[in-house]
Design a binder for these strands. Sequence first.
DNA 1: GCTGATCGAGACCTTTTGGGTCTGAACTAT
DNA 2: ATAGTTCAGACCCAAAAGGTCTCGATCAGC
Lengths: 298, 298
Amino acid sequence: MIELRLLRYFIAVAETEHVGKAATRLHISQSPLSRQIRQLEDLIGVPLFDRERRRIRITPAGRWLLGHARELVARGDALVRDVRAISGGDAGQIAVGCVGTALASGILPRVLRRLRSERPGVRLVLRQAASSAQLAQLRAGELDLALIHGDPRAPDLAVRRVFEQPYVLAVPRSGPLARRAIRPAQLEGQPWILVAPGDDERDRWATAWGAAGFTPEVTVRVVEWTSALALVDAGIGLALVPRSYAAMPPRHVAIRELPWLKLTSRLSLAVRRSAGSKLTGDVAHWIEEAAAQIGSPR
Amino acid sequence: MIELRLLRYFIAVAETEHVGKAATRLHISQSPLSRQIRQLEDLIGVPLFDRERRRIRITPAGRWLLGHARELVARGDALVRDVRAISGGDAGQIAVGCVGTALASGILPRVLRRLRSERPGVRLVLRQAASSAQLAQLRAGELDLALIHGDPRAPDLAVRRVFEQPYVLAVPRSGPLARRAIRPAQLEGQPWILVAPGDDERDRWATAWGAAGFTPEVTVRVVEWTSALALVDAGIGLALVPRSYAAMPPRHVAIRELPWLKLTSRLSLAVRRSAGSKLTGDVAHWIEEAAAQIGSPR
DNA sequence: GCTGATCGAGACCTTTTGGGTCTGAACTAT
DNA sequence: ATAGTTCAGACCCAAAAGGTCTCGATCAGC
C-alpha cells in the first residue's frame, strides 16, 4: 500500500536528483532516504531512478510519477486544510430554504450580508419554497435550514419560532377608513382581497375574523402580498398584510394598525435534530439574532 | 503530515460507523484502530466522530472528509497502477515526428496499426514536419522519436538509418522514354520537374546528375511528390520520385528504374541519447522492423 | 596516475510507532 | 439485576523509520 510519505520523499529526490540534498531538505539523513526510495521502487515494482556511476537519474516512468505524485501530495495537504475550514465553519456549503416573508421582513437579507462578510468561503444555496415543501426537503437532506410559516408540529425536526409580526390593514388613502381608528364593525361586508400564499395560513383567517366580530366580503384572491397592495392601491378593496410588507406602501394606500385583531404572521426556523455542521449552527444563531433585532426595534 | 493509511482507516470506520466491524474489514484489531482514528482527529484538529454513549457517529465535517478521502485513496491506488503500466509500455504517450515519406512508404502505417492493436492504452501524437524542425523538437523534448530524411550529423542524438529506396523516373506513358531502358544521355536537356520538399535533399540532386552525366532543364519546382506526378501526368516534363511514391502512378505516367543513378532516398530514425521510456524503445524497434520488411520484400 | 572529495548504498544500531491483548467503563436489551 | 456490546485506555511486542559509520566507485585537480 502506497503512502504519502514515500511520495514526499520521492518528490524531493526526483526534484534534486541528489539523495544527499533531498535528505537535507527533508530533515533526515541520507542513508534512510536512499532506503526509502528503494522501498518505493520495490513496492510499485518499477525502477524510478537509473543508478549510473555515482549519480542517480530519474527514469521516464519516474518523471511521469513525479507530476502525479506532486498533485496527490498537494491534494492531501489541501484535504487537511479544507476539512479544518469546514469544521470551523469558514468554508463549505449551506442550503437555506425560506418563505417570501423571511426576505421581505429583512431578516434573511441581514443574515446573508453577514455571511458574505464573515464567511466569504461559504457557498450559499437559497431556495424560496412553500413551508411544507421546505420541511420535506429538510428531511431529505436537501436543505440545512428552513425558514417557514407558523409553528408546525414536526417531532423529528427542531422548530423554533423566531419572528412574529401583526397583520395590518391596507386601505385606500382617500376612503373613510384612512382617517380614524378602525373598529371591527366597520369592516363587516367590506370588499376584501384575500392573500392565500399557499399553505398553513388559510384557516387562521376565518377564525381570526370570527373572533374579532366581522366577516368581510372576499372579492379577489391572490397569492402575493405585493399583488394585494397593488389592488388596494387601485381601490378594489381592503387587505390584511404582514407589517413588514407594509413598510413602503404604494401611493394611494394607507396602513392602519388593528390592535384588537389577534392574528399574527409567524416565522419559524427548522433544522434536523441530528448534529448539523458548525456552519449550520452559526447561521441558525444569526437568524435568531437578526429576527430579534428586527422584531424589537427600540 | 497526513498519510493514506489514516485515511483508509477513517474510511472504513466512517462507512460502518462501528470501530469493531471496520477493524475486521481492515484485518487489524479494534483497539489500535480506535487509536489511529483518534490520532487522525488530533492531526487535523477536527472531531470526525461524535462519541455519544457507546456509539460513534460521523460529524458533518467527517462526512465531507469521507467523500474526499475516498477520492484521494483511489487516486493513490490508480497512481501505482498507472506508473506500472507506463513503465511496462502498456500505457502513456509517445510523440512521433515524421516526414511524408515515412507515411507513403508504408513504414509508419504498419507501426501505427501494431501500436493500436498491441498497446491500446497508448496515446499517440503524430506530427509531420521537416527533418530539421523535427530534430529541434526532439531536443526540446517535444518529440520522442523522429523519422527524418538523410543521415544528419547530430552527435547529441542517436540517429540510425532505417530505410533506403532508389529514386525512379516518372515519364509520360505516351513518350519515347516509356519504351526501352533509359541511358543518361537521353535525359540531357529534358524538361524537368524538381521537387524540393524543403531540406537535406537539395544539393544531392546536382551531384547525382553530374555523376550520371546529364543535366536536365528544370522548368517547374514543386514541394510535393504527388504534385510532381500530376505534372508528369499532364505531360509537362519528367520527375525523379522515391519508389514508394510511384507504387500507384497516375494513368498517363510510366515508371522507369534507373540502375545507374546513384541517388537514394534515405529515412533515419532519431532519438535522444538519454534513456527513453520502454514505450519509446519498443516503438523505435518496431519502426526498424517494419522498415526492414518493406525494404526487402522477397 | 595519485590523492582527496563526493556520492550512493550497505551494515548495524536506536528510536518511534503501529498493532495485539487485556481490561474497564458506559450503555442496551432482556 | 444481568449478560452482552462497544469504545477506549494500559501495557507490551514487533516492525519499521531514522541515525551513524563505512565502503566502493567515481571524478576533479594536481
